[in-house]
C-alpha cells in the first residue's frame, strides 16, 4: 500500500514539473524536408509544382505552338480548387507554379484576374497624372493563349494507429481560343502516418 502512496506523490510532483522548458531556435534550409503532422506542407507544394512544370515544358504542345506561331505562348493561371480533406493554402501552390513557369523562359505570363484590377487602376491613374512620355495607355494588354487550371483531391484511410494519405493533383492547360485541352498533368503523393498510443 505504501507503493500506492508513492505513486500518488509522484503524480503530484509530475504535475508541478511541467513548466520547465526553454525555447530553442534552429535555422534550416528551405529545401529541407520536414514532415511534422503529415499534412500538406511546403515541401509538397514545391515538389509538385516543379515536377509538373518540367513535365509540361517537355511535352509536344509547347514546341508545336512555338514553331507554328513563332513566339512563346502566353499563359494565365486560373483557379486551383482544393477538393481535399485538408485546408490547403492554394495561393502558395499557385505562386510556386507561376515561379517555375516564368523561370523556365519558355512561356510568357500575364497577371491573373485579381492582380489585374490593381494594375488597371494604376494605369488609369497614370492617364491623369503621369507625363505623356512615361504614360502607359489602356487597351494594350496582352491576351493569354492558355489557362492553367487544376484541383487537389485526397483519399484518406485510417485503421488503428496507421493512416494513409493519398493526394492527387491534376492540372489542365486549356486553350482560350477553342477550349482545347493541350496538356494534362498529374502528380500523386502518398504518405503513411503512424501515431503514438501514449503521450
Amino acid at each position: 500500500m505504501n507503493k500506492m502512496m508513492n505513486i500518488v506523490l509522484l503524480v503530484f510532483l509530475a504535475f508541478g514539473f511541467t513548466a520547465c522548458k526553454t525555447t530553442t531556435v534552429e535555422r534550416v534550409d528551405t529545401d529541407s524536408v520536414q514532415d511534422l503532422s503529415g499534412n500538406w506542407n511546403d515541401t509538397d507544394s514545391r515538389l509538385v509544382s516543379s515536377r509538373m512544370v518540367s513535365d509540361m515544358m517537355s511535352r509536344k504542345w509547347l514546341t508545336k505552338y512555338q514553331v507554328k506561331q513563332g513566339k512563346n505562348p502566353v499563359l494565365i493561371v486560373g483557379s486551383v480548387r482544393n477538393l481535399s480533406h485538408e485546408h490547403i493554402n492554394t495561393r502558395t501552390f499557385i505562386a510556386d507554379l507561376e515561379r517555375e513557369l516564368i523561370n523556365s523562359g519558355e512561356v510568357d505570363f500575364v497577371a491573373s484576374r485579381t492582380e489585374r484590377g490593381e494594375i488597371r487602376s494604376e494605369r488609369s491613374d497614370q492617364a491623369d497624372n503621369a507625363s505623356m512620355n512615361t504614360q502607359n495607355i489602356a487597351g494594350e494588354e496582352t491576351g493569354a493563349d492558355f489557362m492553367l487550371k487544376g484541383q487537389i483531391n485526397t483519399i484518406f484511410d485510417a485503421a488503428g494507429d496507421t493512416q494513409v494519405k493519398y493526394y492527387q493533383i491534376d492540372l489542365t492547360l486549356i486553350s482560350l481560343k477553342d477550349n482545347r485541352k493541350v496538356w494534362l498533368g498529374q502528380k500523386k503523393i502518398k504518405k503513411v502516418l503512424e501515431t503514438g498510443r501514449f503521450r
Binding site: I7, V8, V11, A14, T195, G196, R197, F198, R199
Partner: peptide, 15 residues
C-alpha cells in the same frame, strides 16, 4: 494530440 493516452493523467483520474 490528446488522442494518445497519458498514463500520468490516467493515474490522476483513478486516484
Amino acid at each position: 494530440s490528446l488522442r494518445a493516452t497519458s498514463l500520468l493523467e490516467k493515474t490522476g483520474a483513478l486516484t
